[in-house]
């Protein structure tokens, strides 16, 4: 299975090679999709974890133990589907494939594919997307 997570790094934990250790200790595939971390300010990382359900669970445990804030992206992005007019403007900027149109010209949002790039927040002319990290 594969899941995408948003990680928050406090400045205090930026000295440890956390992702390197995660890969060494837990048999898990890590794909870094986005990252912005400064040693003094801390930062964020968007990763896709792939492997058995148990290794993903162990990875979350490993990261939590090292005080990395961890959120499943799909639980943090909000899309007000009731207000959507299905114009498609958001699909113009969505490269993770989370936003697309179906055969009935209806917008389809697959939050599990979202990488929290946040381009849709500004591309939606009705401002129907928001993040809560």
């Amino acid at each position: 299975m594969k899941s995408i997570y948003y990680l928050r790094f406090h400045p205090e934990i930026t000295k440890e090679p956390i992702i390197c250790n995660l890969i060494k200790e837990v048999a898990v595939e890590v794909n870094i999709l986005r990252a912005g971390i400064d040693a003094r300010k801390g930062g964020f990382m968007v990763i896709e974890l792939g492997g058995e359900e148990a290794s993903i669970k162990n990875s979350i445990g490993f990261l939590t133990k090292r005080r990395v804030g961890i959120d499943e992206i799909s639980s943090r992005i909000h899309y007000d589907a009731d207000q959507c007019v299905h114009c498609g403007a958001c699909t113009a900027v969505c490269f993770s494939g989370a936003l697309g149109m179906d055969n009935e010209s209806q917008l389809v949002f697959a939050p599990e594919k979202c990488i929290a790039c946040s381009l849709c927040l500004k591309a939606c002319p009705l401002r129907l997307f928001s993040f809560s990290f």
Partner: peptide
């Protein structure tokens, strides 16, 4: 969903709602 322009496949998107 995409067109080929100068040999590259480029994603396309609408601004007008066909559903509406």
């Amino acid at each position: 969903g995409e067109i080929e322009l100068n040999g590259r496949r480029i994603p396309t998107a609408s601004l007008s709602s066909v559903k509406m």
